[in-house]
Simulated assay, not measured.
Amino acid sequence: MDRETNIVGALSLVLSDEIKKAVNEVVGASGETAAAIIMLGPNGGLSAGEVAQALAITPSGVARLIDRLANDGLVVRRSGLDQRVVVLELTIEGQRLRSLALAARERVIKRCLHGISEYELKNASPILERMIKNLLVDQKYCYRFCRMCDEGACDPDCPVEEHKKSFVADD
């Protein structure tokens, strides 16, 4: 393994750890609770199964997570288009907590980017997008990539959404 490859691995691991730690402190929970809250913000209407898949947790694990979020007044369950499916949406309190968690995430990322100029970051963007696309090999995992994203930051040019379209074109 070369030095740069090793550095990418170390950076990704530590950045992920630091983001999880920061958002979990804000949310006051551990595990995938913060990711669920962040992900449900712009994606209201996801089913429990979609949330479980995105967070890589079992159906029973997501059921317990949703129960906790509902009991804490952060999520409401609604009937989907198919009455057999329950979809999830954040409450106003859930949206407020999501905003706080995203702000904590942003602070960690900005700390990581300290001393990197806007010019350097813009030039790195195509490389970072390609790295994401290299890992996104199945459309069903798209939510997993954005589970902790401030999805509005990439509108209208989200690399995951753009790559997701290629899966539809291939079908």
Rank of each mutant, 00 (worst) to 15 (best):
N43L: 06
G44R: 09
G45N: 05
S47W: 07
A48G: 14
G49V: 02
G49S: 08
G49Q: 07
A52P: 04
A52R: 13
Q53P: 14
A54T: 08
I57C: 03
T58D: 11
P59E: 07
S60K: 13
S60N: 06
G61P: 03
A63Q: 11
R64S: 10
L65S: 05
I66V: 15
I66H: 04
R68Q: 12
A70G: 02
N71I: 00
V75W: 04
V75Y: 05
V76S: 10
R77L: 14
R78A: 12
S79K: 08
S79N: 14
G80D: 08
D82Y: 05
D82I: 10
Q83F: 06
Q83C: 02
V85G: 03
V85W: 00
V86P: 06
L88D: 15
L88K: 14
L88Y: 11
T91F: 04
E93C: 00
G94K: 11
G94Q: 09
Q95F: 03
R96A: 09
R96N: 04
R98S: 08
R98K: 12
L100C: 00
A101Y: 04
A101M: 07
A101G: 07
L102P: 00
A103S: 13
A104R: 00
E106Q: 14
R107Y: 06
I109C: 08
R111M: 12
L113V: 09
I116T: 11
E118A: 09
L121Y: 11
L121R: 15
N123F: 06
N123Q: 11
A124E: 03
P126Y: 09
P126S: 11
M131I: 05
M131N: 10
M131Q: 14
I132C: 02
K133Q: 11
K133W: 01
L135E: 11
L136M: 10
V137D: 12
D138H: 14
C142M: 15
R144G: 15
F145A: 05
F145N: 05
C146K: 06
M148K: 07
